[in-house]
């Protein structure tokens, strides 16, 4: 399964990068989201995949059973998902604002900026 996911991650990255290279702010944001999915899966896969127990200590035990999933990668991904969303929300609203002001989806049309 790791091999399959590795290919999937590659495709997600490629799709994300391709969209970010487009001349459209909408596609830029789409690409960002795909890239975030790819990154989350990358952390998840790199931590080792297991179909076994979620990392929850059973009521009759005092420590996690050895065959459980890795809790650390999951915690990292949780954080990443939430932060990714807040960045996305900000990007979307910013885009909304830019569109209101410039009336265009094309980043090259933006007159004010570092160009």
């Amino acid at each position: 399964m790791a091999t399959l996911l590795a290919i999937l991650i590659g495709v997600l990255y490629a799709a994300g990068v391709y969209l970010m290279l487009r001349r459209s702010l909408f596609k830029l944001i789409l690409g960002l989201v795909l890239l975030a999915h790819g990154a989350n899966l990358l952390i998840f896969t790199a931590g080792g995949l297991t179909r076994a127990q979620p990392p929850i200590i059973p009521p009759d035990a005092t420590a996690l059973p050895v065959s459980s999933a890795d809790p650390l990668t999951q915690a990292l991904i949780l954080t990443a998902i939430v932060i990714g969303f807040s960045v996305l929300a900000f990007a979307l609203v910013l885009f909304h604002r830019v569109y209101q002001t410039s009336g265009s989806d094309d980043p090259d049309e933006l007159k004010v900026g570092d160009r």
Binding site: I9, G10, V11, Y18, L21
Partner: peptide
């Protein structure tokens, strides 16, 4: 051109994950 760049990035990431696991 962008598709080529994106594809190489994807291939790199796939190889990266395979090695990392």
């Amino acid at each position: 051109r962008d598709a080529v760049i994106a594809a190489t990035v994807g291939v790199l990431m796939t190889a990266f994950v395979l090695i990392a696991t």
